[in-house]
Amino acid sequence: RREALQAYGLVTAVEPDHYAALCGVADAQLALNMLPDAEASAARALRAQPNENRAYMIRAMVRLRRNDFNGAIGDLEDAKRTGYDGEDWNEAYSIACSLQGDALLKTNDFAAARTSYENALSHGNSDRPHLDLLFHLAYTDLALGNTAEAEAGMRHVLSIDSDYYSANATFGTHLAKRAEVRSNDAAEAAALLLKAVEQKPLTNAEVEFHLGVAYVKLEDFTRAASAFHRTLQVDPEHAGAADAISLVEGQLSLTAISKSFSEKDDAMAASKISNPKVMAKGELGRSIDDIAPLRDDGSGSDSRHNSLEVCKNYPHTKR
Rank of each mutant, 00 (worst) to 15 (best):
H18V: 09
A112L: 14
R286M: 10
D27Q: 11
A152V: 11
V181F: 02
L137W: 13
T173Q: 10
A214I: 09
A196F: 04
R65T: 11
R66D: 11
M57F: 13
Q6V: 09
R230E: 07
I257V: 14
E206G: 06
E77P: 06
P276S: 00
L254C: 08
L134T: 13
S262H: 09
L99Q: 08
H156Q: 15
L133T: 04
G250M: 04
Y8D: 03
D161M: 15
L121A: 09
I58L: 02
E198M: 11
P236F: 06
N306F: 07
E52C: 11
D17P: 11
S274H: 03
N275V: 05
D185H: 12
F171K: 02
L252H: 07
A191G: 06
Y93D: 02
A112R: 08
M268H: 03
G172L: 06
D102I: 11
R59D: 05
T222W: 13
F110W: 07
E3F: 14
F171L: 09
E151D: 13
V310N: 02
A280K: 00
Y19Q: 09
D161G: 14
L218H: 04
D132I: 12
E39W: 05
Q199E: 15
K80P: 10
A187S: 15
A120N: 03
I257F: 13
G86S: 05
K277I: 05
